[in-house]
Design a protein around this nucleic acid. Structure first.
Length: 416
RNA sequence: GUGAGUGUAGCUCAGCGGAUAGAGCACUGGACUGUGGCUCCAGGAGUCGGGGGUUCAAAUCCCCUCACUCACCCCA
């Protein structure tokens, strides 16, 4: 029989790596909750048109990267390629805006895009995201940057830079596009084929193109920031001032336009400095709720690519400081171990053991390989005296502990 | 979707037309019998990604396919 393998671009997350994943997930969840965000769990499959409407008909995500299928009744379904459109749908459908003015939500889970796999890019990937509904002040935009910065710092990821830009409101966008369209059309031959299409359908995306000729032509264009209306300009300036107050390393990047149509005003990305890969991205989308047939409510949010952060977490801390290995010498010790385990479980102390008939030195070798720091030795000698030995595998020091003190002593040791 | 590279033991790789396909690490067992990280000995392992072709002979050459990696595109 031929073995059936996993699908292309989709991976298993094995126990070796899971601690890193948990650390990242827990960090983002914890910090978001401290900022007052509440979790929302959105479905993995949706009506396809949620994404067509939300993300934009002409975006690559919708045109070529969505997993789509028809269900048994012929309904058009899509696996979610991102979270925001679903959250907005849920926000509107459940009339969450009736509860309070500001709604702060976070979500976490797998997203799906049918893309060619590459470094940090998988067909099933994991995003953590937050959305704030109802707030139009630049303080909200800044709060998200602050949240991201705190979280990355806590994870020990410091080689990052925030790229910031503003796309303005609908009017600013229209004005700007009108201004540059003539220039684009007169230089149309200098653009690559993709950009020729973009000029018609979504001119702002030209700024994202990495083709050298396109880049050069675009460089001569005025920046969108210079075409912002007074209100948008004020919003952006205030936002930047707040970021400066945080002391965060940032760069204004007038070419940052992003590939999703719903953004207005603030857009941002967090890039890892070494290989310029975006590990988080987001921005303001003041019209999306309205455009998806909800009330006219402004919003801002971001999404973090967990898969891209995992390799950035250093794993030199392989020593398991919070686990105790039970070394059970002989049948009497094995019998007695269940009593001890019960105590450990009640006190949420992690432990491991095997029930092999080994000598002490053999056992210590086994423990050594596991990387577990604490070792509880129990044999006939100890049982007779009503004690156990607790040994620190790192320092080699050990001490005798009375039976009734086991839990307390271990707890004490684990802390340090 | 486009281009390039790579698939040989659990991992990292060697072999690149010729015999029973190897090494290091890891793993298992043993020597050391209540104090480890060492050392020594032994052992298990592989449809050489899959399919087809060329050849007396294919892991090795050719074609197809699948997967991985990298870049483009795009994005988190």
């Amino acid at each position: 029989m031929e073995i059936i393998t996993r699908l292309r671009g989709i991976k298993d997350i094995l126990p070796d790596e899971i601690e890193k994943w948990k650390k990242i997930e827990q960090t983002f969840i914890e910090i978001s909750e401290l900022f007052g965000f509440k979790e929302i769990r959105i479905p993995i499959i949706e009506n396809k048109f949620i994404f067509v409407k939300g993300i934009g008909t002409n975006t690559d995500i919708v045109m070529k990267e969505m997993y789509e299928f028809k269900d048994k009744k012929g309904r058009e379904i899509a696996l979610r390629p991102e979270g925001t459109a679903s959250v907005v749908r849920a926000f509107i459908e459940n009339k969450m805006y009736m509860k309070q003015k500001i709604t702060k939500l976070y979500y976490y889970g797998p997203m799906f895009r049918y893309d060619r796999p590459q470094k940090g890019r998988y067909r099933q990937f994991y995003q953590f995201g937050v959305e704030i509904f109802g707030g139009k002040s630049p303080y909200f935009d800044a709060e998200l940057i602050n949240l991201l910065n705190i979280a990355f710092d806590k994870l020990g990821i410091r080689e990052i830079i925030f790229l910031l830009n503003s796309l303005g409101c609908e009017n600013c966008k229209d004005n700007y596009i009108k201004k540059i369209k003539g220039h684009l059309e007169s230089n149309i031959n200098k653009f690559c084929n993709d950009c020729k299409v973009r000029i018609e359908k979504n001119p702002l995306r030209i700024f994202d193109c990495k083709n050298i000729s396109c880049k050069k032509t675009v460089e001569k264009l005025p920046s969108i920031i210079d075409f912002l209306c007074n209100e948008c300009k004020e919003h952006f300036e205030k936002f930047i001032k707040l970021i400066e107050k945080f002391g965060i390393e940032y760069k204004i990047d007038p070419k940052l336009v992003r590939g999703i149509d719903y953004y207005t005003r603030t857009v941002f990305e967090v890039n890892f400095k070494n290989d310029e890969i975006a590990i988080a991205g987001g921005g303001r989308y003041d019209n999306l709720v309205r455009d998806m047939s909800g009330p006219d409510i402004p919003a801002v949010g971001f999404a973090v690519g967990i898969d891209r952060i995992v390799p950035l977490i250093c794993d030199d801390k392989m020593i398991k400081n919070d686990v105790v290995f039970l070394v059970l010498l002989g049948e009497n010790a094995r019998k007695k171990s269940f009593e001890i385990m019960k105590n450990l479980i009640e006190n949420k102390i992690k432990f491991e053991t095997d029930y092999e008939d080994r000598s002490l030195s053999e056992y210590l070798r086994v423990v050594n390989k596991t990387g577990i720091r604490w070792c509880m030795i129990l044999g006939d000698n100890e049982i007779e005296k009503g004690v156990v030995i607790l040994k620190d595998m790192q320092t080699g020091k050990q001490e005798l502990i009375e039976n009734n003190e086991i839990v307390n002593k271990i707890k004490e040791r684990i802390k340090c």
